[in-house]
Design a protein around this nucleic acid. Structure first.
Lengths: 131, 131
DNA sequence: CTTTCTGCAAACTCTTTGCACTCGT
DNA sequence: ACGAGTGCAAAGAGTTTGCAGAAAG
């Protein structure tokens, strides 16, 4: 046997899959603890790594803070609000796959891509204006 | 007076500006030390922050390792090789500005964007094939 | 039973910071 | 000479890891 199915792994995946807010490892830990009170942060980190290696979860590295996790596997883009730090999903542009082809012609092997927009989200933009 | 022009700040900017390989803070430190032997890593970090705040340098946060710095201010995309960790510049797609407009219509205030492709660069792709 | 996984705590990496001193202006 | 900037070393955040014991198959 190679990989075991543990409560900790299942719960970690369930939390990331249910989340729609790109949680950090610490967020995931807090949420998993609601079900498994004794799970440690180290285990959450190990299981997140495992899920990423299995391709069931993706890492989103944006901004100066911690890595964030996402079980949305369909290609999509992100918007990061520099005021509230919230990351929202954007539906993917149609134009993008074309660029991959041109890179492949130049000898690159492209396995992934991310586009992130930065700025102020509508909610924070409104709040800023009214202050 | 507000900001002073120190040897350390000048040298830090000169190194980033001359670099074409997206150096980490530690890289920048090593290179600046060739001219100012007593400069500390903390000072390099503080000066890199200052340059970023001034808009003379950009931070590139890709991959699990440290932040990397770039004085190339024209819009461009990145390719990160997952084997050798090298980040290369790609000329920017023409299609991208269009998407910003559509985000603005939805209430986002867009101040920046990055697109990164992941995979294997031509050199590593060749090396892998021949092994 | 065997081997992987876990909890815990310590270690590690990257970055920031407090303090006394230095150096631009 | 005033105060922003510096070097140094210690502290912080985020993440990884060694180990002894727990538990999946």
């Amino acid at each position: 046997m190679r990989e075991r199915q543990t409560r900790q792994l299942d719960a970690t995946y369930a939390v990331v899959h249910a989340a729609h807010d790109h949680p950090t490892a610490e967020h995931v830990h807090e949420r998993v603890q609601q079900r498994l009170k004794r799970i440690s942060l180290g285990t959450v980190y190990r299981n997140l790594q495992k899920l990423v290696a299995q391709g069931r979860v993706r890492v989103v590295r944006i901004g100066p803070r911690s890595a964030r996790f996402d079980a949305m596997l369909e290609p999509h883009e992100h918007f990061m609000c520099e005021i509230c730090d919230e990351i929202t999903d954007l539906s993917s542009a149609v134009a993008v796959p074309i660029r991959r082809t041109s890179l492949r012609r130049r000898g690159y092997n492209v396995t992934g891509q991310t586009t992130t927009f930065f700025g102020t989200c509508p909610r924070c933009a409104r709040a800023t204006r009214s202050n």
